[in-house]
Every structure is written in C-alpha cells, then in structure tokens.
Design a protein around this nucleic acid. Structure first.
Length: 672
DNA sequence: CGTCTCCAGGTTTTT
DNA sequence: CCTGGAGACG
C-alpha cells in the first residue's frame, strides 16, 4: 500500500478536516482554500484506515468534477477505485432507479427526458388536451413544473391554471415509461419512503458520505442524501455560501442552516487561507463580496504577495474586445512563460463567446469552448437518439412521434391523430397502435403512407435486435443511419451543403461515441440502456479530452466554478450583463447572486486578472450603448487600473465618456 | 393531406 | 444564425 503523507501535504485546519471522519461535519471552504485537496485527501484517509471503497459515497455537482475527483484520488492512492462511488446526484438517482424503479410501476428500460424533451412533451400534452398549445410558453411552463415537482413552490393563484396540464404531463411520462431530471431525485426519495427496506439496503452499504458544492444542492437533493446517511450520520458537506450561484435551479444555501439544525453536535471547520490568488485579487474579491448582506462572516486571507495589477480594459465594441483579449494572451504567455491552457476567458452568457472566438481564430490561437449547446442536444443527434430510445423503449411515444416523419415518409397531422386516437382507445402505446393498424385489413391508413410506415416498423424491428444484441452497436447504428438515408434527409432539409455536412459529422460522432463506449474495457455495463442514460446526463463537454489539450479555455462563469487559471479574463464586465438584466428584472434580490457570480469569476484567477468591457455591443443584431458593470464601483478604484482604447474614439464620444466617468466618481464618493 | 417557403423571434446561467 | 410556426401550394 502506498503511503500518503497527510501531515506534510496539509495545513493544520485542512488536516483536521481530513481526519474528522466520524459524525456530521460542515466544512466551510472559501475560494481557493484547498477544498478539492481536502476532499481527495479525506477519501484517501478513509481508505488508509481500511474502510472499504464500497462504503464510501462522494457526491459532486457535475460529471466533470466527479471524473476529476476520482482521477486525483487514483493518483494519490495509486489504487484501483472500481468500488468507490463518486457521482452526481442525478447519476446516483439513475443508479437507484435502475435497481428499483419497478416498485413504482415503471419498467427498467425507462427513458430520461432532458429539458428539450420535456418542452416537447408539454407541447404535445397541451395539444392533446386542447390547452392552447400554440401560444404556450413551454420554457416557462417547464420551469413551473420543475419547481412544483421539487417542492420549491406549491400551487398558487399564479400558477394553478397549469395544474391540470401538470397532472396530464405526469401521467404521460408514466405512460411513456419516461422520467424527467427532477424525477431522478424525487422518485428515489419516493421509493425510500414507500419501501424502507430498500433504503436500508443502501444505508447498510454506505457509511461515509461527502457532498461537494453543498451550497448548490437543492432541498430535495439534501433530503435525498439525508435519507441515505441517516443511519451512519457520517455526513460531510463542503461548501461556500459566497459561491452559491444556482438558486435559479433550486439550489438553496439555506441547506447550510438546515444541516446545522438536523445534525446538532456537528463539527464545523472553516478553511479561510487562500492558496490560489495574489493579494490584490483576493482583496478585490473580498471588497466585492462584502456588499452582500446575506452571508456567513468570513474573510479569506493569503500569505501571497500583492502581485500584478488588475486591469479593466475598455474597447469600442465586441470585435475590439476580442482582439484585445487575444493580444493580451499572446503577450502574457511570453512574459510569464505560460501555456495556453493557463488562460481562462470567462463570460456571463454563452452567446458572448462568438466574437472572442473569431479573434482567436484570426490570430491562430488554440482555444476550447465549453458549454453552449450540448452535443447531445443538437437536433440531428437527438433524431438518432430518438431512434435508439424507441428501439429500447417502445412505449416512448414522444420519441416515436419525433421520428415518425423523420426522414419524411408522408406522415402528417392526420395520420398522427389517427394513431393517437387508436392508442388512447386501446390504452396502448402509439407503437403498438401503429403495428395494429398495419396488421388490420380495414385500417383507414392510406396506401402510400401504409407502405412507408410498414417499412418504418420493419426497420425499427430489424435494428432493434441488432442493437439489443449488444455486439457492434456502433456498426449497427451506422447501418441504420444509412438505411434511412439520413444524409439525403439532411441535405433536403438544410439546402446548404456545408451545414448538412457539419450535421452529418455530428451524427457520425455520435456513432463513434457509442462505439468507443462499447469497446471501452473499463466499462462494466456496455449495453445500450446505460449508454442512453449516461449521455442524457452528461450534456456538456465531459467527453472531450480537455485537460490534455493545451488550449485557451473559453467558457461561462457558471461552468468555471471549481476551476482555476493563472490568468483570468472576464469579458463583458458591463451593466445588464453582470449583473444580468434578466436576472435582476425577475427578482431584485437576485443581485446578490449575481455578485456572487462575479466573485466566483474573480477568484478563479491565480496570478493576473483582466476585465474587459465595451462601449457599445451588438445585442440581437442591434447596436446598443453599454455601461461598465455597477459592481466595479464597489471595488476601491486604486485597486484597478483602467485602460481605454484611444485610437478610434472621436472627441465628442470621448468627452461624453469622461463626463460619465466623472459623474460616476463623484457619485461614488457620496455613496460610500 | 402533406410539404415547402418564408417570416418572426430570441430563453442567463445547467443536471 | 437557427428554430419553429403560419400559410400557400401541389
């Protein structure tokens, strides 16, 4: 067994956190205080005490974090970790459902619906029940349903117009043998409360629990882990209320307060020494976050030197902003002797990456964007996934409806209505309704459509057997794609040859991903069901090499959480972007969360922090004048070096600009 | 009855 | 730039 040097590698407080393994423990870990280090060493410590891997469960927020954590533990302990559970809440939910969902009357081959599927289902249900589907804001309704299901809100006069629709939605999910993301947490809880014996199976196995990013867990996720850990009470939660940035998704930092109440006699350890950032960066972060009323008192401190100046660069427009960032990266890389991967460029919204990407391309700078539309959510990829879903779960009407006319086979509104009516009156799936129509001599199905649909069903059956055999699934899928002439469909659909080619490449990547999955020797469960479950959950750039590549990292602030870079550049430090207009409009208490978001962005930086803003920016195709983020005013001005791009400024604009600056300065003196 | 074409609108952040 | 819907056309 390898020996991990705990005392040598950790400071006193960290060591205490690592060695406190019995009983409930709350670790408040400020940004850059070695949180990940503590978690990995803590697991290594448990293992060194001969605690079995299979009794340890660590829950992280993203797949990426889970993967990184197991990598680090493997590195540290040099052990095979095949029995260690490191997972996201949702993946954990899938695992439990896979083992027990039959109790609730679902079958084990259930489909998982993502946000897009959910919205289509809502639309379909609304259509079916005559709810006025066409003008329905399915995005909004989907969010309401989420909040209802996760018990964030109840039915009120504001939303009870959707109550019937919700009931129908739920009924349809069950009928289709499908679950949505919220079900992945709620249904296990339901199983546990209905069948305590099943819960006991898990509480007997798992004895040591750890939850990372605890400030971002939702109420139901907290209940979930509480149930699992109630027997041993060895629950360690790690979080930082200042980095709570997911309240819009149900995250509730009040879980920290609940934890204190639920576990009297718990221990609390605060990690306040920052090892990441320079003194200046930390000071700016502290000054900013102190403006939040609602927070646990703590102050990060650092032994590091003041470091490089913090810059705010103002350019005329987003094109110049991108060029400026590219230029900074080129010169700083040489000056500090850094790699491309040491740079992180952070933005508030995904759409802001484009002009920056263009500048990088122009300068031939290697970069990697994480976020944006997930690969598995692209239309062309989802089409093929729908084929797989229908083949694995014939009750999945929604996915069947999605592909019943893809590629075009002459199936329109009327045919679909006919099939749905039959399905309803016979209480069967659309799939079997269709099969019945094809068998029946007196079916009103027209001759041409009938032939097409017959071919459709036969194709599905043929490839279903091939895929379910579990051998060469990638080849079978590719054969299916060719069989249905998906390429011709894309060509016809897009009319643009390049775009069709791009889409077909994505489809081929999907096939490759399946082929890789089934041929991975470390994959314990290489069947189509687990593949489908997995890809629905990992909706981001998890499958890419990422760390191995030496590239600039371009991403949203949200997805930068938990990461660090030598140089961080925050682009678009503007009013209406940071804080985001929509967020503030929605609820003015959201300003604090937006401030935390900015705080997270700042504290990603180790050595140098650069912020940029434009004077004008194109929004929805229109040029709009912009202003610097009001958060900048909360930071003492002597901490930030402001640079303006002079060359293109005409005198009028310049005067106007200085006037504004002056007004801001004097306003600030009065204000503080 | 189904398909094609043109037009408007635009979802903050993600499992 | 891309998607989804309405309306014309075959």
């Amino acid at each position: 067994m390898s020996v991990v040097q705990f005392e040598k590698s950790l400071n006193d407080v960290q060591l205490e956190a690592v060695q406190t393994v019995e009983g409930p423990l709350l670790i408040l870990a400020g940004a850059g205080s070695g949180k990940t280090r503590v978690i990995t060493y803590r697991i290594a410590y448990l293992l060194s005490k001969n605690i079995h891997q299979s009794s340890i469960m660590a829950v992280t927020f993203t797949n990426k974090a889970a993967k990184e954590m197991s990598g680090r533990i493997r590195e540290l302990t040099r052990k095979r970790l095949s029995n260690l559970t490191i997972s996201t809440f949702h993946a954990l939910g899938v695992k439990i459902l896979k083992e027990n969902i039959d109790i609730l009357g679902y079958k084990k081959n259930f489909s998982i619906y993502d946000q897009v599927d959910k919205q289509s289902l809502i639309k379909e249900v609304a259509r079916e029940t005559g709810f006025g589907a066409e003008s329905l804001d399915t995005y909004q309704v989907a969010n309401i349903f989420s909040n209802i299901k996760s018990q964030i809100t109840g039915w009120t006069s504001l939303n009870d117009q959707f109550k019937d629709l919700y009931d129908e939605y739920q009924a349809h999910l069950k009928l289709y043998n499908a679950v949505d993301f919220d079900d992945l947490i709620m249904l296990p809880i339901k199983i546990f409360s209905e069948k305590p014996g099943i819960l006991e199976k898990y509480t007997n196995q798992y004895k040591y629990f750890m939850v990372d990013e605890f400030q971002d867990t939702s109420l139901t996720q907290y209940q979930f882990i509480k149930l699992l850990s109630y027997k041993s009470k060895n629950l360690c939660v790690v979080g930082d209320d200042d980095q709570s940035i997911y309240s819009w998704r149900g995250a509730n930092y009040e879980n920290l307060l609940r934890f204190e109440k639920d576990y009297p006699g718990y221990r609390e350890i605060k990690l306040e020494q920052n090892y990441r950032s320079t003194g200046r960066i930390l000071l700016v972060a502290n000054k900013l976050i102190q403006n939040n009323k609602n927070r646990k008192a703590k102050e990060l401190w650092s032994g590091a030197e003041q470091g490089e100046p913090i810059e705010l660069n103002i350019t005329q427009n987003e094109r110049q902003e991108g060029e400026l960032i590219a230029g900074k990266i080129r010169s700083l890389r040489i000056r500090y002797g850094l790699q491309y991967r040491d740079f992180g460029v952070l933005v508030r919204t995904n759409s802001l990456t484009r002009p920056i990407e263009e500048a990088f391309i122009k300068d031939s700078l290697p970069y990697h964007v994480s976020g944006g539309m997930s690969f598995f959510q692209r239309k062309e990829v989802k089409d093929i996934i729908s084929y797989l879903r229908v083949m694995t779960n014939e009750e999945d009407d929604m996915n069947l409806l999605r592909i019943i006319n893809i590629p075009r086979r002459g199936v329109g509104r009327k045919t679909v209505e006919l099939l749905m009516d039959t399905a309803k009156s016979k209480s069967c799936s659309i799939y079997s309704a269709l099969a019945a129509h094809l068998k029946a001599a007196n079916s009103p199905l027209g001759g041409k459509v009938r032939g097409e649909l017959d071919e459709f069903i036969n194709t599905l059956q043929y490839y279903r057997h091939k895929i379910l055999s579990g051998k060469n699934m990638g080849d079978s899928l590719m054969a299916l794609i060719e069989h249905i002439d998906y390429w011709d469909f894309l060509l016809l659909e897009t009319k643009n040859k390049n775009s069709a080619r791009w889409k077909y490449m994505n489809v081929e990547s999907l096939v490759n991903s399946l082929a890789d999955w089934e041929s991975d020797p470390d994959n314990p469960d290489p069947n189509i069901y687990s593949y489908l479950n997995r890809i629905t959950l990992l909706s981001r750039d998890d499958n890419e090499a990422g760390d191995e590549d030496n590239k600039i990292n371009l991403m949203t602030i949200h997805s930068a959480k938990g990461l660090e870079f030598e140089v961080v550049c925050i682009a678009g430090t503007e009013r209406e972007l940071i804080p985001h207009q929509r967020s503030v409009e929605e609820n003015d208490t959201n300003v604090e969360e937006e401030r935390r978001l900015f705080y997270v962005a700042i504290t990603r930086a180790k050595k140098k922090l650069i912020m940029t803003a434009c004077k004008e920016r194109r929004k929805k195709g229109k040029k709009v004048e912009t202003d610097i983020s009001p958060f900048i005013d909360e930071i003492p001005e002597n901490l930030i070096e402001v640079n303006r791009e002079e060359e293109v400024v005409d005198t009028d604009a310049a005067n106007e600009y200085f006037k504004k600056m002056k007004a801001r300065m004097s306003q600030k003196k009065g204000g503080t």
